[in-house]
Amino acid sequence: MNAKQYSSHLLHFYALAAPDFLVGPFADPALRNIVYVINKMPDVGAMALKMMDFGQKLCAEIGGKSIHPIVAIVGGMKKPMDEDARQKFLKMVPEQIEFTKKTVDIALKVIEDYWDVVANIGVVPTYYLGMTKNGVHDIYEGNIRVVAPDGKKMDYDVHKYLDVIGEHVPDHSYATHTYYKPAGYPDGIYRANCLAMTNCADKMATPLADEALKAMREKIGNEVIHHTFAYHWARIIETVEAIEVIAGLLEDSDICNPDCKTLDVEPREGEGVGVTEAPRGLLLYNIWSDADGICKKLNLLVATNHNIAGIEKSLMHVAKQVFEDKALDGLKLPDPWIK
């Protein structure tokens, strides 16, 4: 999961977001894309590609496929990692950590350059939804945590999700809007994924990532951060944690232990709820099974649900800023890195 987190976040940062910053947000789309960035900044481009490649290859090594991995099974894994592969990836880790540090520097420079934008455009107070384990950032398991616009943190057991999350069906979209139920709709609209995760976390799980989180809080604010553009920063903080966790897991030879399915299960009629944090937000499953263990009914609340209302809310906010308040006019934009 951290390998996926790593490559997915880097794909977002380098391939989808960076072109807007590096070439300039108003540049011709034919130039404002990853292909052009690679051509113009081959060193950064090659580094970015090597990082994504590491994440995806590691994911494929463990999961069989990097997209739709198939190795997980009720009670464990179908196969442990091979020792050779562990050694191979372990050798690549130091370079990846160096790359990650360089990426942090690039992200910081982008934030610095675009500070006027970060601080003024799309600062939208909402709730936030994420996952923590004992208050610490965790993408594997834990409690649902909700952060209120004023920074107040609330923890919920995942089995109680129906008390926490409501699903508003809008008339204009098939993607339903989840919201924080006690606050009602639309007041309870929340945002999810990286910035929500860092807003939820008391601290990150690993040292470098925690330093990076402290740096963001020092610059933007200690309580809860509502700056939409800070998503890029939070994404990099999670990327740092991902590579640190990967390093830790690869160093532990137990990852190759053939005793990889530890729980024996029997099918029975029942209901279960599970959550993990996917790169773009909480993945929540509620499954009802029959006596054969076959799924009869399910409710899925996925990242799209958790993000869409928040995205619409921030978009409305920014649209108003741009078109009504002409907020872009006085804005300081840097010279593009790539001309």
């Binding site: 129906l162 699903e167 508003h168 069906v169 509620n286």
Partner: peptide, 10 residues
Amino acid sequence: VESATTKRIP
């Protein structure tokens, strides 16, 4: 669906 609070077909 269990979590839906507004029920309608968009």
